[in-house]
Amino acid sequence: MREDRSIGSYNIEDGDSINLQAGPLSFAKPVIYLHSPSDIDVSVKLSLIPEWSLSVIYPVVPMDYRQHLEWNVRTTHQDGSLTEHNSSLHVSYLFWEAKTNLQAFPRSPASKPPPVDTFNPITNSLDDMDSIVIPVYKAPVYLDKSLKVLGLHTEARTSFITCVHMRYLRLSNHEHLLATVYPQAAYEHAASSNISPQPDVVTRVCMLFKGICKEHLANWPNAQMQAGNDVVWWVDVVGVDPTRAGDVTLFRVLEWGGVEVLI
C-alpha cells in the first residue's frame, strides 16, 4: 500500500520560496557486512533521523520508537558470517529497511532546502549535475563496475544489482536508469551507525535511483554524458578507500542500500 502523500496545508505568503521534493522514497534492502581478521564480539547501533522509521529488520532485536536499534553479534572470520547473541541466529549480514515519515516534513511557511552535505529521505532529489542516465539493459554491467571500484565484493554486488535492477526497474518497465550515489558523510546524517569495537574501514554506499522514459531524456543532458565517463569518479564522490576495504587483515564494515524515488 502506498503511503498517504498528504502533508497538510501551509500559510504561504507572497515572496516565500517553496522547495519541491522528489519523495516519497522507498529504501531497498540495506544490508551490513562485518569482516574481521579474527572472531570478535561486535555491537552495531543504528539511529535514524525523524524523517525515517525502521520498517523491517533481521535479525529481529528491540527497537526504540523505530528510530534506534542495537545488534550484538559474533563475527566468523573464515566466511564473514555473523551469530546474533540473543537469538543465536547465524546470518550472512544484518538487514534493515525504512519508510519515510511525511508527517515529519517541516510545517513552516516556506520549507528550506536541506544542507548540501546531508541526505534527507523526504527533501533530497536527483540532480542533472551529479547523476548518471543509462539504458536499463546496460544497467547491470555499469552497476557492477561502479560497485566494484567502490569496494563491494562479488556477493554484495550481485545482491545489489538483483535487488535494484530486477526488483524495481524491470518491474516498472522503464527504459532508462537515473541514479546517483551519495557521499558517506551525507548518508551518515540520515542513518548514523556506531560500531564497537571501532572498525578500521567503513564503506557505506547509498544509491538514489529512479526509472525514466525516453521522452524525459532531454531533461538530463549532463547525466547522460557523465554515464560515459570512467566509473572511478564515484570513489571520490562517495569518499571510500577501496584498497583498505579489501584488506583482509583489517576489521571492515560494508553497507549498501538503494533509495528509489517513487514520483
Rank of each mutant, 00 (worst) to 15 (best):
E255M: 09
D247S: 06
F251Y: 10
H176I: 03
P199E: 01
A110D: 04
P37L: 06
S81R: 14
D41V: 09
N194F: 03
I18M: 08
S53A: 13
V253E: 02
L208Q: 11
N120D: 15
I40G: 01
Y137A: 11
P140G: 06
I263L: 11
A156K: 02
P242M: 07
I12G: 03
V181E: 03
P106Q: 06
R74N: 12
V238N: 02
Y93N: 13
F105E: 09
T243D: 13
Q78V: 13
S111I: 15
A227M: 04
Q226N: 15
T75H: 00
L169V: 00
Q67W: 03
N11K: 14
M129H: 13
G23A: 08
P114Q: 04
I7N: 07
T76I: 14
Y187I: 14
I57E: 00
Q184Y: 08
Y182P: 00
S26P: 00
S26D: 12
S196L: 10
C213H: 15
L102P: 01
A223M: 01
D117Q: 10
S36A: 14
L69R: 06
Y33Q: 07
Y187L: 14
R252D: 04
H90L: 09
S47R: 11
G246R: 04
P183D: 09
A223L: 03
D79H: 01
A185R: 14
W256L: 04
V149N: 09
P183Y: 08
W256G: 01
S193Y: 11
V164S: 08
S146H: 03
S55V: 08
Y137E: 15
R244L: 12
N120E: 05
Y65M: 13
V248Y: 10
Y65T: 11
I132V: 12
Q226H: 14
K214M: 07
R5N: 15
S55R: 12
N101L: 04
L20S: 08
S6P: 03
I195R: 05
V141T: 14
A191H: 01
A227Q: 03
S81G: 12
H77N: 12
P50M: 04
V149E: 11
K45S: 14
L169A: 00
H85W: 12
D14P: 07
A22F: 10
W96N: 02
Y10Q: 09
D241M: 02
Y182I: 11
W220R: 02
T154P: 04
K99Q: 11
I18F: 09
I122K: 03
G15R: 05
V61K: 05
F105A: 12
V91W: 00
E188C: 06
V253Q: 02
K214I: 09
A179Q: 05
L20F: 13
A218S: 14
Y168V: 05
T203W: 00
D236F: 08
P109K: 07
L178K: 06
V42D: 00
V149I: 15
V61M: 05
Y58L: 06
I263D: 14
K99L: 10
W220P: 01
W220H: 03
W234Q: 05
N219A: 15
D16G: 05
N11Y: 11
W220G: 01
S17T: 15
